[in-house]
Design a protein around this nucleic acid. Structure first.
Lengths: 349, 349
DNA sequence: GCCGTTTACGCAAACGATGTCGGGAACGAT
DNA sequence: ATCGTTCCCGACATCGTTTGCGTAAACGGC
């Protein structure tokens, strides 16, 4: 059963005008007399005329839709980003089509394929944890599709990018742990190929070094599915706990890894923060209510989303290929709560 | 800068054929000779031809997009529903356009307006907490737009609907509180106009009655913005705590209200579950890690999403108006954790 | 009264694809 | 040789809208 819409032709017929006249009247062209304009406008209003966006898209070769690829919308970080994107998109008359990679390379590829086949005007992408090569993205970009990367960027593709200062975020989180008295600090991160994983690892290492602590490779664990597969995190943690240098604190690199750690530690009856301190990147809205309340590195996700689309639109609307690109870097915020609070030694003081 | 796509014309020109022949060859029409078909198919493959969905939409007067209106995607309940919707949509070749009401009637109306102007084929709706009248929805539905309601349905509009058994969910939650020894059970719910609020209230009242407890109006509080405005929940709770019959347990009607209660009670240093027991509808994925772990009524959100779109598609694709509708009711699940655990009296036993 | 200019509108092509119709070529049957 | 089929394929219209161009009518200047 279809939804019958009124077209410009209906107006033309009803008023005894041509479609061109109606079209121009609606667009307030100088070629149309004020009387005719009023006639058309009033009638259009009366029958609630809505221009058909599909016809317009065909004519303009622009769909006014942009595709967004995120890990999963259930993740607060991404849902906040999407809110930022949508707030701008709506203002500017763009549609947003969201697709989720669920951190799988295959899903990401098929989403990419799907989105481009749906003729979108541009793409906002945060690559999945599993992504090993960027050939698909590169091919699409080379064909002229405007892309802006956010969060998990791709160095190999030259375009605008929006990230946070992952290095400093990780540096501060690690330094905080050190200052709280933790000395064997483990780091659980995403697949090592990811930009965010590299930067956060570097921040972690730099903080250790600056505080005169040595780097111990056995305290660094990679979760190449970003924690989407529960087992990989469980294995990583198991290895850490069996490690001859046993960690007394964990810095986790993502939302899922952080809360995942907490869940496993609880199951193993390991007390946070007394046995092990825990801090991680997270934009969850319940971290303050957890047991214990989590110390987190928070990212300005809403702003990232806004910025990303604000950078994308000029690429879409530019008549000539853009050749100069920039990478915007936003700051993270360190929120200290009880999960990194007291070391046993400190309690005794 | 635009993304130049290859069209059927390019193929026709390159092969010295007409566009109609190419079109038919691609659609494997019997009117085309096997040789020509192979020629066209091979060439199309080679230059990676993708049919333009916009042109198709214009021709077929179908956009192959459906609109979804939810409260907010940051809410796990809704993001799970969306996952369910997308899983089916993708299979069936439909696009999903998500819009968030943020529980505001104005935003819902403008989203509705926006979605219909984008020529969608159908609509999946869970009305906002603030929605006072359904005139907009009704007008759109009367014009022939297929709509399926889920979660928060609208009785006044006759169409397919998907809900959970809110009555039983609430009944079981309330009964559980009673069985745990709580006797002054408050209920915090959404705007009283909402279907879910009515049904859950009824379940709550019925459980009280069946256990020989009397209904006390002063223990029932409505949050007409669904907890989106922090103050309203804080006020509701303040009143409850000042009430002459002071509640020793709270049954909250939604995710946001449940975790919101917990946050406020913590701030007021009121212990859950010792001072006050807490249970609520929630699909959050961290409720087990909260302090205390929350007892919840969980809804099969993913299935609801799948069911909703599965009911919508026939409405869209039917050639004649559908006049017979059904309402599917799914079961909720009661998950018992510590937030409803022990009453002081019980501890002493 | 002739011509140039302005005003106000219509015609038709175009965007990419599909579908209806019609027709040329090849073939067999008579 | 003529006719009827069948097989392939092209011309054209169409979906709803915009836009370049053409043009009739009105008007003003001399």
């Amino acid at each position: 059963m279809k939804f019958e819409a009124v077209t410009i032709k209906d107006i033309a017929k009803a008023l005894g005008l041509s479609t061109s006249t109606v079209s121009r009247a609606l667009r307030d062209s100088y070629e149309i007399s004020p009387e005719t304009k009023k006639l058309v406008l009033d009638y259009a209003e009366k029958i609630n005329y809505q221009p058909n966006p599909i016809a317009l898209s065909l004519k303009e070769r622009k769909s006014h839709s942009i595709g967004v690829i995120v890990g999963e919308i259930a993740n607060n970080f991404f849902s906040q980003i999407i809110n930022g994107i949508e707030s701008v998109a709506k203002e500017e008359g763009y549609n947003v089509i969201i697709s989720q990679s669920h951190e799988s390379f295959d899903k990401e590829s098929s989403n990419l394929q799907y989105l481009t086949s749906r003729s979108i005007d541009g793409l906002l992408v945060s690559v999945s944890a599993e992504t090993l090569n960027f050939n698909n993205l590169k091919a699409i970009h080379d064909k002229g599709m405007p892309i802006v990367f956010f969060d998990r960027i791709v160095d190999e593709i030259e375009t605008h990018k929006v990230i946070v200062d992952n290095f400093t975020g990780a540096y501060n989180a690690t330094s905080h742990l050190i200052e709280m008295g933790y000395s064997n600090i483990a780091h659980i991160c995403n697949a090592s190929i990811l930009s965010i994983a590299k930067e956060r690892l570097a921040g972690y290492l730099s903080a250790l070094k600056d505080h005169g602590m040595e780097n111990d490779e056995s305290l660094i664990k990679y979760c190449k599915h970003g924690g989407m597969i529960a087992q990989e995190l469980e294995d990583a943690l198991k290895e850490l706990l069996k490690n001859k240098r046993k960690p007394d604190a964990i810095f986790a690199s993502s939302d899922k890894l952080t809360t995942g750690c907490l869940r496993i530690l609880k199951k193993k009856k390991i007390s946070v923060p007394n046995d092990i301190g825990l801090i991680g990147f997270s934009n969850g809205d319940l971290t303050d209510l957890l047991d214990p309340p989590l110390s987190v590195v928070r990212q300005p996700a809403f702003e990232m989303g806004q910025l990303a689309i604000r950078m994308l639109l000029p690429l879409i609307e530019s008549k000539y290929p853009v050749t100069s690109f920039e990478t915007k870097v936003l700051s993270t915020e360190l929120i200290i709560r009880n999960s990194t609070k007291h070391q046993p030694e400190r309690v005794l003081k």
